[in-house]
């Protein structure tokens, strides 16, 4: 009871800090703008061009938008606390390192959920257009949520390493690129168990199968592992001040 309480109070403050600055609005508008444009208006490849009532385009674009969107959300979470010294204020209250890190994670996660909630009208309208696979779409949303969670883990870890927000942002992108691209390329360029290993680490293959509607426990475990590793490492880095 007490444990979850401090986490929730911190998450709530963080979330209201997003909305009190322009950060939340800029990010929401750009997220909805990008995904909306490519889903509905881009002409080449949008829902009307493909003449299929599904959200495949949306899931693909959302993956890439979140790739930039989430580091922008997570960059300040721990880096700014460290820069301004407020971390000392927080951790000398009745709050443990873990509660603080979890609170930060939760705030970014809620931010992403809010962004995704705004795309529910896409879902509702496309589902009216023709033969619509609700299962595959819900699975796609689950994929986006899991993917976001993993990105937040990565971003949080990047933010714990520095007290400079820009460095945290770039570091999160760099780590993200590894998972998005580099591991995939390395998997193709090698053979045997090494190829196998990089293929498992590559985020793309896991996300693709989920966004097609195939929920495999392996993929779920993959995303959750990155999330937990990110949170765990952040907590470890923060506790090293001692």
């Amino acid at each position: 009871m007490k444990t979850s309480n401090a986490t929730w109070i911190i998450a709530k403050r963080e979330l209201s800090a997003f909305f009190n600055s322009l950060v939340a609005y800029i990010l929401l508008i750009s997220f909805l703008g990008f995904t909306g444009f490519f889903t509905w208006l881009s002409g080449n490849g949008d829902v009307f061009f493909r003449k299929q009532a599904d959200l495949k385009v949306f899931f693909m674009i959302a993956n890439w938008t979140l790739f930039f969107f989430i580091p922008a959300v997570t960059m300040r979470l721990l880096a700014e606390e460290k820069r301004s010294g407020t971390i000392e204020l927080l951790l000398t209250k009745n709050v443990s390192d873990r509660q603080m890190v979890l609170g930060k994670y939760l705030s970014a996660f809620l931010m992403v959920l809010i962004a995704l909630a705004f795309t529910i009208p896409y879902y509702l309208s496309v589902s009216q257009l023709g033969n619509f696979d609700h299962g595959a779409t819900l699975s796609g949303y689950l994929g986006l949520i899991l993917l976001s969670s993993a990105y937040i883990g990565i971003g949080l870890f990047a933010s714990s390493l520095t007290n400079n927000q820009i460095v945290a942002f770039l570091l999160a992108l760099l780590l993200g690129i590894c998972f998005q691209f580099i591991f995939g390329v390395l998997a193709n360029g090698s053979t045997g168990w090494i190829s196998e290993l990089f293929n498992t680490l590559s985020l793309t293959s896991h996300f693709d199968s989920i966004s097609r509607g195939v929920i495999d426990s392996k993929d779920v475990v993959y995303f959750l592992s990155i999330t937990f590793l990110g949170i765990f490492l952040s907590e470890y880095i923060i506790s090293k001040r001692k």
Binding site: I9, A17, T86, L89, N94
Partner: peptide
């Protein structure tokens, strides 16, 4: 703490409420 770090972007009263909640 030394240098008195505070959440710069919060109104005083919200900040005090936040700390009070956190302190249970």
């Amino acid at each position: 703490p030394e240098h008195n770090p505070l959440y710069e972007d919060m109104p005083v009263i919200d900040y005090l409420r936040f700390v009070a909640e956190l302190q249970g």
